[in-house]
Design a protein around this nucleic acid. Structure first.
Ligand code: SF4
Ligand code: SF4
Lengths: 152, 152
DNA sequence: GCATTCAATACTACATCGGTATACAATTCT
DNA sequence: AGAATTGTATACCGATGTAGTATTGAATGC
């Protein structure tokens, strides 16, 4: 598993679309139509994206949403964090949360390292990079190429 | 977020302990005591680990569990997959599941690439590597060093 | 002022997950 | 054989979180 929630998934999907339209503004209803995500759900997601300052909103006639930065400067890590909160594989991964075992656990201090690595991967993959992955024919973005090298 | 479930967390914790004891056998009750994980929960986790053939079990007096392979040959990816199923960031990440948007979604074919990359990271981090991460002083395991290089 | 469009809140149905209880099967030792 | 030990299997429960919905309110622009 280790899956990203549906809402975050939608968030990325929407951000991606906004990226293609940039710098045009897109109304919430249009977003729902294009992405086929139910409107009320879009509403909820947009709130997160605005709060995270990933998109700029404007009200009134001809209002809508607009990607705040070029797609190449928006990482998947940011997008996911915007919707689901900061990446934390375990409770003790980042600013130690509230794991009751924390004191007696051998692995307590060791997770942040792992966490940092996968975070780094997501940070280095931008919305623009997503396009490069192509449909069913993965093209690894430059910053990650060294890691993937032994794969294909 | 993007967190690994508590059960998988426990699983790794247990595997790690078994690794230190190897090749000794450890009874379920002992595992519960040492790791401070509630016994019934240990019971549930062990089933997954046995099914995945990560540990070998033996019944009867002086029975218990034993790590099937050297800790350096057990990856976090395997451990997590054993408990939570195969890694799939989104529904369409691996063998396309059942996302109703799949046909009309621009990103449908693009996730497997991302998925493969983070999977690769978890595959390259073994139980033995966990130790090297040290407490609060991360030491990146060799196979990932190139990726982390620009960080510190 | 009025149409348009986003913002905020509250709520519900549902799934998943962590955790528990209980009955059962296999192994060893005497 | 029989008792003690240890893992296996199943079924269940309650808390938590998630996806989705509804309603009402506030800002913008003409
Ligand atoms: S302290 Fe141990 S048990 Fe608690 S979250 Fe960290 S690794 Fe898991
Ligand atoms: S098809 Fe689109 S919406 Fe469905 S899981 Fe894949 S990315 Fe998410």
């Amino acid at each position: 598993m280790l899956k990203v929630g549906r809402l975050a998934d939608y968030g990325i999907l929407i951000l991606h679309h906004l990226g293609r339209m940039r710098p045009a503004r897109l109304a919430m209803e249009s977003i729902a139509e294009i992405t086929h995500v139910p409107l009320p759900t879009v509403r909820k997601v947009m709130k997160f994206l605005v709060d995270a300052e990933l998109v700029i909103s404007k009200r009134g006639p001809n209002g809508g949403y607009q990607l705040a930065r070029p797609p190449a400067q928006v990482s998947l890590a940011e997008a996911i964090a915007a919707v689901e909160g900061p990446l934390a594989l375990t409770e003790c991964s980042s600013a130690d949360g509230q794991c009751e075992l924390h004191d007696q656990c051998d692995l307590a201090g060791r997770w942040p390292g792992v966490n940092a690595i996968v975070l780094r991967v997501l940070e280095r993959t931008s919305l623009a990079d997503l396009d490069r992955f192509g449909r069913h024919e993965p093209h690894v973005p430059p910053p990650l190429r060294d890691l993937m090298a032994p794969i294909r």
